[in-house]
Computed example of a mutant assay.
Amino acid sequence: MEISGKEHCLPVEILDDLSSRFIINVPEEERKDIVRLCFQVELAHWFYLDFYCTTDPKTCKPCGMKEFCTHIFQHIPTLNPHVKDLDSVLAQWREYKLNVPTYGAILLNKDLSQVLLVQSYWAKASWGFPKGKINEDEDPSHCAIREVLEETGFDISSLMDKNEYIESTVNEQLIRLYIIAGVPKDTVFQPRTRNEIKKVEWFPVADLPSNKKDMTPKVKMGVGPNSFFMVVPFMKRLKRWISDKQQKSSDSSRRRNKSMSDTEPTANKSKKQQQQLFAMALQNEVMESQANRQHKVPNNSPTQRNGRRQDNSKSHAKNGLRRQLFNGDEDKKDKGRQQNQTQRNLSNANINDFRAPSWMNFKFNRSAILQCIE
């Protein structure tokens, strides 16, 4: 069979199988609309490429949509009359396809620096976002989830925000891409459709072109901007979206840090005030103690408001009075011995043994106290 100047032949048994799977059993009203029937022929074409061409490459050679349609139309008797108008039918079908919205997703890694792109099996030199045409009565978000799952093997349903998307009209076709952020960079992507997606790779957002003349990918990756012609219509808004998200995150971080820094001076100030008051109190105690020692006032002096020590002083006074009544000379001697003992106690006092009156009998280390005052 001669088609478009090239000889190509599909085995009859394969044509029978494809026709019965996708075309013959279609409802009659659908088969009467030749343009809409081309969608079924397209499904048969994909099935042929995915299964027959991979399992038996010697017998089944890949071919384009027009060539495949010619074989199908010639093989099915009810479609034979349309072979002569095939070019017109395919033109109407392509125009109709442009009016069917396409939905997909822009997958970003956790820090929003990398974006996931897919490479078509047939358009080997071009990269794009995973996407596909919506089915009848299908929700746009469900279409995006389904297409991304088919082309990458990754389920975006748990990460999707239906209000976060970029929408553009390309070649009279509406394309909406939901923005999916936080995809792990080490995710293993495995397309579920064979011979449709050849590669799935991460690309730096900063290296992708924002317009057709942007040569950044050529300089950074050695790939011209034409390879990203389906990416260009979305890049300016995507970069703006990423910039806004990063700015909001930075502002939020600054507000948290400012809130923390505002509370720190108050806490530090209160702590310093407490330390100053404590140091002043200790300093007063030390000065009072030094003054008492200079005047040789013993620690058991009644001037110190210690009830137990005052009682001891009274006891000594009674003993002294009794001795004075019965033996004046002994009293004088005892008084002299008592004064000498007091002086020896003061002179032999350990410099680190400091008892603050305000803390009763609690013992403090004088050197540590002086360091705290400084």
Rank of each mutant, 00 (worst) to 15 (best):
I145N: 08
E95N: 14
T187H: 07
D33C: 08
D56K: 12
F362C: 11
D17I: 01
V41N: 09
R192L: 10
N327R: 02
Q283L: 14
P265H: 05
F203K: 04
V100K: 04
Q276F: 07
P57S: 09
R366G: 15
L98A: 14
R240D: 15
P11L: 05
P81D: 13
S249L: 11
F189Y: 06
D331A: 14
I24Y: 05
Q119H: 05
L149E: 10
E95K: 06
E2F: 02
S126C: 08
P62K: 01
K32C: 12
K236T: 09
H45D: 03
R344C: 06
E374I: 00
T78V: 03
D111H: 00
V170R: 02
H71E: 12
W93C: 15
C143I: 00
E147N: 04
S158R: 04
P233T: 01
M235L: 12
W46G: 15
I156C: 13
F129S: 07
Q246Y: 01
Q119I: 00
N365G: 13
L112I: 00
E264P: 00
S243I: 00
R355P: 01
W241G: 03
A105K: 01
K110L: 04
E196F: 06
N306S: 07
I373A: 06
S141C: 11
W202N: 08
L159M: 10
D33T: 01
M280T: 04
D331W: 09
Q273G: 10
K61H: 04
L149H: 09
R308D: 13
Q290A: 12
Q338K: 06
K239C: 14
L282A: 08
P209C: 05
K185F: 13
F228K: 02
T187C: 07
T70Q: 14
G128T: 03
I76E: 07
V200N: 09
A267E: 11
F362N: 15
A356P: 15
N348E: 13
A125C: 06
T78S: 14
S347T: 05
T70N: 13
S249R: 05
G336D: 14
D207N: 03
A125Y: 11
E330I: 00
S210W: 03
R366L: 15
V26E: 15
D33H: 05
C53P: 00
L282C: 09
Q119A: 11
I156L: 12
R305I: 01
V188I: 07
R305D: 13
E67L: 14
R344I: 02
N327W: 02
D311A: 14
E28C: 02
P298G: 06
W122P: 00
R308I: 02
M1T: 00
Q173E: 15
S270P: 03
E2V: 03
H82V: 02
M235C: 08
D311Q: 11
V89G: 13
M230Y: 11
T187P: 04
N211Y: 08
A349R: 02
D251Q: 11
Y52C: 09
K32Q: 13
I197P: 07
I14V: 10
P302G: 05
L177W: 04
